[in-house]
Design a protein around this nucleic acid. Structure first.
Length: 465
RNA sequence: GGUGGGGUGGCAGAGUGGUUGAAUGUACCGGUCUUGAAAACCGGCAGGCCCGUCAGGGUCUCGAGGGUUCGAAUCCCUCCCCCACCGCCA
C-alpha cells in the first residue's frame, strides 16, 4: 500500500501510476474521502479531548460524592443524588458528538480503505510504458553451447523434437488422465522418474540458494489468513486467483487461503515486527506447494504441465533497507542466481524488462525470465512445433509497498522508523521448468539426458529412457 | 474434542472502575567514574493517526471486536491465540 501523505502531496504520481499500469482506481475519490475522513477525525478528537478533560475534572468529585452517598440518608441523600446527576450530564453532549462522528466515519471508512488498498506502487521511471506483455522489452538472451536461437530445433540438433507431452508419456513421467480423475481439470500425477526429476530440480535449487548464495531455507505455511494475503499485496486484486477455505462457515475459527507462492509465507514471517538494522538484509528461500485457481484462464494452455492448479516452487525473497540502490543491487543478484541455475541446467532463456502495463499493483520494476520451450508454438513446415519462450521466472522490486502493508519496519541509523524494501524472485518452479528441461535435453530416440547438476539428486541417473 | 489456567511495553512482571500509556526489574542507548572493562551512579527509552513551518499539542492502542459506564487494562459478551492435563490421531 502506498503512503497517503505522499498521495496528498503528489497526487499526479499516483494518477499516472494508475494510468501507466492500465488500472482502474479512482484516485481523486480516494483523495476526497481522505479529506472527509480527516475532517471527521479532527471534530471527533476535539470532542474527545474536551470529554477527557471534563472527565478528569469531575471524575474524582463524582467518586467522592458516591462514597458519601452510601452513608447518607434523607435530605442529604437527595441532595447528593441531584449533585451527581448534574455532574454526570455534562459530558453527555460531547458523547453524542463523538457518536455522531463515529457514524460518519463508519459511512466512509470501508470505501476509503478499499480504494487505498487498490492504489498501485508507481513504476520507476525507466520502466518502459506499455499495455501488456507484448510491450515487454528483451534485455538479453543466453543459450548453451551449440544452440542457436536463429535456427529451428531440427537445424540445431539434427532431428525433429518431441513435445514434453510426448516425452512424459513415452517415459511414464506424468499421468494426466489419472490426475484429472483425482483432482479434476489441470491436475496431474508425477510418476516415478518424473517425480524424481521434479524433486531433483527443487532440491538442487534450494541447496544452491543455501550453499552458494547464503539464503536461509524456510518451511512456511501455505494455508494462511486473509490478512497475510492482503499484507503481501495479493488481495484484494488476486482474490479470484486463490483457493478459499471457509472455516468460519463451520461455526468457528477463521477462513484460510491456499497460497499461490511461497512469497506469502516468507514475507508474512516478520509482519508487525520492528527489525534491528543489523538483521537486514533478510535473505530467505522456501520450497512450497503453490495453488492457483487460474480463474479467467479457461481454455488457455489446457494441455500439459504449463498451466496447472498445483505446483511446487522454490522462491527467494530479500528484505533490505529502504534504499533504492540497495534494492537494485539485490535485484541483480537474485536474477544472477536464477541465470546460474538455468545455465547449469543447460537451458536457453531470455530476460524481459516488463513494461508498466504488465506490472502488478505491488511492484515498481519487474524482470521476467522466459525459458525456451521447443515444444510450444505453432507447427512449422516440418510438422514440428517452432518453439516459443515461456515464462518460468519473475523478479520484482516492490519498494516499500509490501512492507508498508505488512507493517514490517526497522530503525535506521538515525533511529528513524522506516518501512523496509522487499524483493522476490522465482528460483525454480516445477513442473513447469520440466518442460524446457525435457524438451531441450531430448535425444533423437526420445531419451532425455539429465543435466549433470541434477544427477546427485536422482540417484546418479544420467539418462531417462 | 473435553476440562482448567492465561494473553499487559524488547523480555520479565505489578496493576481488578477514576490524574495508569501503564509501577518495578531487566535489556538497550547516552553520560559520570576507570588505563580499559566490569560494577556503581545519573539520564533517556512504544507505536499509529490528526493538527502545526518549528516548538509543541491532541487522540487512539494493555490479544481482536462489540457492550456497560460520566469514566474501562480493570466489569459483561463473542472470537482468536497460548499453556497444562485427558481423549483421539498422520
Amino acid at each position: 500500500m502506498i503512503d497517503l501523505k505522499d498521495l496528498r502531496e503528489n497526487p499526479d504520481r499516483y494518477r499516472n501510476a494508475v494510468r501507466d499500469k492500465c488500472m482502474d482506481v479512482d484516485v481523486d475519490r480516494l483523495l476526497a474521502l481522505d479529506e472527509a475522513r480527516r475532517a471527521i477525525l479532527t471534530r471527533q478528537e476535539t470532542a474527545r479531548s474536551e470529554q477527557n478533560k471534563i472527565s478528569k475534572e469531575i471524575g474524582p468529585t463524582i467518586g467522592q460524592l458516591k462514597g458519601k452517598l452510601k452513608g447518607a440518608a434523607g435530605d442529604e441523600k437527595d441532595r447528593l443524588e441531584i449533585e451527581i446527576a448534574t455532574l454526570e450530564s455534562k459530558p453527555a453532549e460531547l458523547k453524542a458528538i463523538v457518536a455522531e462522528e463515529e457514524r460518519h466515519m463508519q459511512a466512509i471508512e470501508p470505501e476509503w480503505k478499499a480504494l487505498w488498498l487498490q492504489v498501485p506502487q508507481p513504476p520507476t521511471d525507466e520502466v518502459p510504458k506499455g499495455k501488456g506483455s507484448d510491450d515487454n522489452v528483451e534485455v538479453r538472451r543466453w543459450a548453451p553451447a551449440g544452440w542457436d536461437f536463429k535456427k529451428s530445433f531440427a537445424e540445431n540438433r539434427g532431428f525433429k523434437p518431441r513435445t514434453h507431452l510426448e516425452l512424459v508419456k513415452m517415459h511414464g513421467l506424468v499421468d494426466f488422465e489419472r490426475g484429472v480423475k483425482i483432482g479434476g481439470t489441470r491436475h496431474y500425477v508425477m510418476w516415478g522418474l518424473g517425480m524424481r526429476l521434479h524433486q531433483a530440480v527443487l532440491r538442487y535449487a534450494v541447496d544452491f540458494m543455501a550453499d552458494k548464495r547464503g539464503f536461509t531455507p524456510m518451511g512456511v505455511p501455505v494455508l494462511v489468513k486473509e490478512e497475510c494475503m492482503i499484507g503481501t499485496g495479493f488481495f484484494p486484486a488476486g482474490r479470484e486467483q486463490a483457493y478459499h477455505i471457509e472455516e468460519s462457515k463451520r461455526g468457528s475459527g477463521h477462513d484460510m487461503f491456499l497460497t499461490g507462492t511461497g512469497e506469502v509465507g516468507l514475507m508474512g514471517l516478520h509482519a508487525d515486527e520492528i527489525l534491528h538494522m543489523d538483521q537486514l538484509p533478510l535473505k530467505y528461500c522456501t520450497v512450497s506447494t503453490c495453488f492457483r485457481r487460474e480463474a479467467g484462464a479457461a481454455g488457455k494452455d489446457t494441455a500439459g504441465l504449463y498451466r496447472i492448479h498445483q505446483f511446487d516452487k522454490v522462491e527467494q525473497i530479500v528484505v533490505c533497507k529502504a534504499d533504492d540502490a540497495e534494492s537494485r543491487a539485490w535485484h541483480k543478484q537474485m536474477i544472477e542466481s536464477v541465470e546460474m541455475i538455468l545455465q547449469s541446467m543447460g537451458l536457453a532463456y531470455r530476460l524481459l524488462q516488463c513494461c508498466t502495463g504488465d506490472l502488478g499493483v505491488k511492484n515498481e520494476d519487474m524482470i521476467d525470465i522466459e525459458s525456451w520451450m521447443p515444444g510450444r508454438g505453432a507447427n512449422g513446415p516440418d510438422g514440428a512445433p517452432t518453439g516459443e519462450f515461456g515464462e518460468t521466472h519473475s523478479a520484482s522490486r516492490l519498494n516499500d509497498f509490501q512492507c508498508r502493508r505488512l507493517n514490517l519496519r526497522y530503525k535506521d541509523e538515525a533511529g528513524k522508523m522506516r518501512f523496509a524494501y522487499a524483493l522476490n524472485n522465482t528460483v525454480a518452479a516445477s513442473p513447469r521448468i520440466l518442460i524446457p528441461l525435457l524438451e531441450m535435453h531430448q535425444q533423437a530416440d526420445g531419451s532425455v539426458i539429465v543435466p549433470e547438476v541434477l544427477r546427485p539428486y536422482m540417484g546418479g541417473i544420467a539418462k531417462i529412457g
